[in-house]
């Protein structure tokens, strides 16, 4: 498995996975913190009751929900599409890496890239808030919690899209579903959490650590049990379907 992961990391160099991730991380961070530099937002910075950090976290949640499903779909599709060209599945299988192993290695390798990327994204948003002049003390807990859950959720959707890209050769399906998912993720932020829990992409809204309550934005505790259940379910299903991939005929 370790060797398969190392191989996947090598494939990323020519796929330019690094530049794509950096580009999108910078874009999302910029979009999340753009409002911090407007006059209206700045007036709230010195007012501890206005909770400027929680408001920033909410904007960040919105932008991450809209873009993360597409980012994961693009990364997974690029990493998996190459195997369809030039009989990559067969070649890897003769070297001892069955399609199932290959798919699991792809998710692990992409997660290794995504972990520092998501952490950097959050740090950039916090940095932008500090540069813009938020003086209120930063409550680190919700930010660390949100970033961790965002990363875990991205891994879950990487698994979905690697599987889709491997089973359906036409990459339109994987990337298209990612795009429709991003739409749902953004929309679920506007509907009750009870409904979001039933939609896979709704979990980008369920993990929100900040919520708008009337006119004020406050920190909130997300339903950890639901999130853990969703992640475990995805892991179990992925283990099952990748095992099945080993037995299908191409």
């Amino acid at each position: 498995m370790t060797r398969a992961v190392v191989l996947e990391l090598r494939k990323m160099r020519r796929l330019r996975t690094g530049p794509i991730v950096v580009l999108l991380v910078l874009a999302v961070a910029a979009l999340s913190s753009a409002s911090q530099f407007s006059g209206g937002t700045r007036e709230t910075f010195d007012d501890p009751t206005a909770a400027p950090w929680a408001a920033l976290l909410l904007t960040y949640t919105m932008m991450a929900a809209m873009t993360s499903p597409i980012l994961t779909a693009v990364l997974a599709s690029r990493q998996t599409d190459i195997e369809h060209a030039g009989a990559g599945w067969t070649l890897a299988a003769t070297a001892g890496y069955t399609p199932g192993v290959l798919c699991r290695a792809k998710v692990v390798a992409l997660s290794l890239v995504l972990l520092p990327a998501v952490a950097l994204q959050s740090l950039l948003v916090i940095g932008a808030g500090a540069v813009a002049g938020i003086r209120a003390p930063l409550d680190a807990g919700p930010w660390i919690g949100y970033t961790t859950l965002l990363f875990l959720l991205d891994v879950a959707f990487l698994a979905l899209h690697v599987w889709l890209a491997a089973t359906v050769e036409n990459q339109l399906v994987s990337v298209g579903i990612g795009m429709l998912g991003a739409f749902l993720a953004a929309f679920t932020l506007l509907i009750p959490s009870a409904v979001s829990r039933l939609i896979p992409w709704g979990y980008y809204a369920v993990i929100a650590h900040a919520a708008q309550d009337g006119d004020v934005v406050t920190y909130q505790t997300p339903p950890y049990a639901w999130i853990a259940g969703f992640l475990i379910l995805v892991g179990a299903v992925y283990a099952f379907v990748t095992r099945r991939l080993d037995r299908i005929e191409r």
Binding site: I20, L23, R78
Partner: peptide, 12 residues
């Protein structure tokens, strides 16, 4: 030549 890369550029 890639399918997904232009979509990523479009997103940016």
């Amino acid at each position: 030549k890639s399918f997904a890369a232009p979509v990523a550029v479009c997103l940016a």
